[in-house]
Amino acid sequence: MDYFLELFFGGLTRGSIYALIALGYTMVYGIIELINFAHGEIYMIGAFTALIVSSVLAFAGLSGLSVLFLAAAAAIVYSAAHGFTVEKIGYKPLRQAPRLSPLISAIGMSIFLQNYVMLAQTSDFLPFPSLLPDLPFLSDLEIGIGSTEAIILMTTAVSMVLLTLLIKFTKMGKAMRATAQDRNMAMLVGVDVNRTISYTFIIGSTLAAIGGVLIASHIGRINFYIGFIAGIKAFTAAVLGGIGSIPGAVLGALVLGWTESFATGYVSSDYEDVFAFLLLVIILIVRPSGLLGRSTAQKV
């Protein structure tokens, strides 16, 4: 039972980080129907920025929570800036192009950003400092959950709530929902579509940056390639839940996290990534619209 609980919480932690990244995919897909391949790279850049900033701060003699907050803030700012720029350069000129074009452009962006970080930094794994503080009271509770896991879960939950509020109750959220429904109609009723799309990328990138800082502190090392696998897995989660649907992305991410956790725990750890891809393939074949997605008829 202890082993089960350990796997359960492991899967929950994993899943909640996937959820943070998956939300970026799902929001972008919902609004411009594009699989933003570069999203995983945005997350990787967030992790790298956090590493660099925290190292510089540690060098300057700071420590503790201030480092965490400054590093996380820098990660968020830079991830959001990258997300914004990627959209402006790679996708905005292709709004009217055939569907394949922005997709190929996105793949190109992803390869470019990976290699940019590799050339500017290093291709080796770098140790990531554990920025998250210890919560001693958790070990007294004896529920099989460490403080890192607890912080990850809490941060994710808070981010989700904030995101939901933002989308439900702000003017920007309303504009985003309108653009997702029908871009041209939204334009007619006075929504600044380009700005809304930029906001979507910025919000998605912010969430990815939070995910990046959390997962890097959790795993303890990063390299330029982490975005690729994480990106694909988060995309799997988004598709699993029904791409375009925000609660779907969270649900899909949790299902994926548990699947991976239990499969590696009970079956074999060599094939960890295979399970994720297998789940993706099966879902797309059996239920392409995802768990919570609606299938839409194609209009001619």
Binding site: G90, L94, I104, G108, F112
Partner: peptide, 14 residues
């Protein structure tokens, strides 16, 4: 090389 490949893919599409 890979950096350029990525760039080429984006630029060609645009």
């Amino acid at each position: 090389r890979m950096l350029l490949f990525g760039l080429i893919m984006v630029m060609m599409m645009i």
